[in-house]
Each structure stands twice: as structure tokens, then as C-alpha cells.
Amino acid sequence: MRPFTYERPKAIAEAVSMARSEGAGHVNAPVQYLGGGTTLLDLMKLDVMQPTRLVDISRLDDRLLRGVSRNREGLRIGALSSMAELADNGMLARDYPVLQQSLWLAASQQLRNMARVGGNVLQRTRCPYFRDTSYSECNKRIPGSGCAAMDGVNRLHAVLGVSDKCIAAYPGDWAQGLAALDAVVEVLGPGGARSVPFGELHRPPGETPHIETSLQPGELITGFVVPGEPWPRSLYRKVRDRESYAFANASAAVALRMRGDVAEDIRIGLGGVATTPWRARTAEGMLRGKPLTEAAIRAAAEAEFAQARPREHNRFKVALGPATITRALLEAKAMEV
């Protein structure tokens, strides 16, 4: 961990003005916001992130950043809500179970108490070659240096959205639900406020895996809006090696609007298998307006993974991904709503 100055501004405007910096991309900017700190401080200890100034926003009590509200547009969630607080939210559990479950099934209660839902969507990959600076090859850490994961141990790496430069998996859970429900990200930065469709927040690695999001240096996520009606028939299915406190080998955030056996609307977000929170649009397209049978789901799910590019140890995800979608959709279909 490199030396840094620690600031605790009293107001959101002050925070944003403190965070103004020149930097190559949001994650490598010399000034970083400190919310829960569960990713940032971890990566600073590992010397992977080296900011020189931390702006602690965790105590800002601006209404913009706090709480859950509903209006005609839909559901709004303040970015400084803790994961634990939302996981215990009864309304969310009833009307948006996919969101509530994705929080509850993530990390541990201690981490959920600390982590904020705004910062959580920016959680960085668990790729071991990225997290350990003693590896000289990591295009995400050192652009152009190569990728040790390609021929290394890659059991937990991505099979979707990969490039020749990077196969690091996006590790979070909460983002999958937001991706599935077409959430909008509210952002405040030195240049003012703007909105970003959730699907445009994360950037696939492509040629530039070191640029992970479309955020600019100094920009702060202030909240999320989930538009439209609630999604009571929705759930988050997380598949992992141990029962709790583990990252997903695969996960599916699914939401359905059914008419009889037919899926009038269907949303599928995938985790654990892709470089970014993945929207399974191919599968959705094949199933929308169709009866949800196990065979139809299986076929659509496999079609989604037709584009998968596995490596030596993560080949099983090409089977696990469709199995996870299938299980999640069958379980969502069977929900009593």
C-alpha cells in the first residue's frame, strides 16, 4: 500500500471536486472514492491499485446517495446503501427478489455491512494473475504485457466476452440483476450529472482490458434506477463449489412475466462466466413469447453459449452456464407469485 492522503468531505459536491484528477481511466486514477473499501483497500494492500488520495464518501448523508424509493419511473436505489441493508429490505425481497437475493448470496455479512451497492458494481476481477504483481504478464495491470491466465490456471475464468488480451471474469453478483432489469446508472462527476444504461457501464476487455468501465476519472455512481413495474417472479441462482462465501462458478439473474406457460417477457443476466455482467440476449430472444419447457430453455441456453471460448480448465462452464440458466428459469417459473 502506497502512502495516500485521506479526506472526508462533508458534501457530495466537495467530494466530487476533490476527486477531480488526470488519469488513465477510472480504476487507475490517482484519486479514488472510498465507500466500503472492500475491493479498493484489498487491491491497495496488494499494490495492484496505487491511488495517492482517498476521498471517503461513506458518511455522506445526501439523500441522493441513500435509501430505496419508488415512483412512477420505477425503483431508485441510492449508491451508498450497504449491501446488507438492501438484502434485509422486505419490499425488495417481495417485488424484486432477484436483486435482494443477489446481495444476500454475495460475500459475508461483515463484507455486506461494509460494501456499498454503488462501489460493488465496480468490484474488480479475482483473476489471480491480475491480483499478484509478481506476475509480469497481465494486460489489465500492465497494458501490452500479455496474459498469464491464457495458459495458466483458468478454471474460474470467463468463457463469454473474452478477448485475446484478457479472460478475467467479472466476479460480482448484484450487477447481474441490474443488467437483467435494464437498470440505469446515475453518475455525478466533475463535468456534471449523467445517466448510463447499465449495459454500457462495463466494457468488454477487447484490446484494452485495463479500461473496465465507461466512467471517467472522478465520476461517482450516485444511484440506480430500475425502470418499469416490479419483477416479483425473479430470482438469482448462484452456483459455487461451497455452499456460502464463495464466488460464482456460474450464476443467473432471471426475471419472468408469464402468461400461462408462455414467457411474455424474460430477462437473463449471467455471472461467473463472462468478463462483464452478461446479458443473455440470444437466449432471451429464443424464449420470449414461447412456452417455457425444459427442452426449450436448454436449447436457448446452449445457443447463448455457442459463442463461448473456453480455455483448458474452464471448459465445464460451457456446460454449467446453460445448466444454471435452465435451473434458474425452471425455478422462477415454479415460483408462487
Binding site: G37, D42, D56, S58
Partner: peptide, 11 residues
């Protein structure tokens, strides 16, 4: 309950 290893003293 929080993890004191990922909490700065200043926080």
C-alpha cells in the same frame, strides 16, 4: 459487524 482488516483506522 465489520472486518477491521479492510477498514482504515481513519474510517
Amino acid at each position: 459487524r465489520v472486518l477491521s482488516c479492510l477498514t482504515l483506522a481513519a474510517q
